[in-house]
Amino acid sequence: MADGKVEFELVSPERLLASQSVDMVVVPGGDGDFGVLAGHAPLLSTVRAGVITVYEAKVITDRIFVAGGFAEVTRERCTVLAEVAMPVSDIDTAKAEQDLREARDDAAGAATDSDRDAATRRADIAQAKLDAVRRAAVH
């Protein structure tokens, strides 16, 4: 392994989505974004819906949207387990907006707490998708 590099792995239940050596990864952790460089202290964290950014020589080479999951960081490796992952460029804005509206309607009309929680979660994911697209457009 090259010095100063961190092995980044993105895994979905269906398959290994990415496995590459990169300079830095920024992961949207449950308690806030964190960047992982080589030699990071071992860490287990939840991942909220958001964008993983991959840096190569100080330039962003990849933006991947994940709908939540877990991250495991060791000195030389950063593994993200995500059930849904897609490149930000593949996000369908119109669909995300529609999802957001539907989810909000569902949340408002939900009869039980668990229904409302599920709908709120869907709304959060859709919102995170839209944010991701917006931020990618700014950069």
Binding site: D31, P42, L43, S45, R75, E76
Partner: peptide, 14 residues
């Protein structure tokens, strides 16, 4: 063999 943690333990977040 858990990826040599160098004796360190994981930090947990949250």
């Amino acid at each position: 063999d858990a990826d040599d943690l160098g004796g360190a333990v994981y930090e947990y977040e949250p």
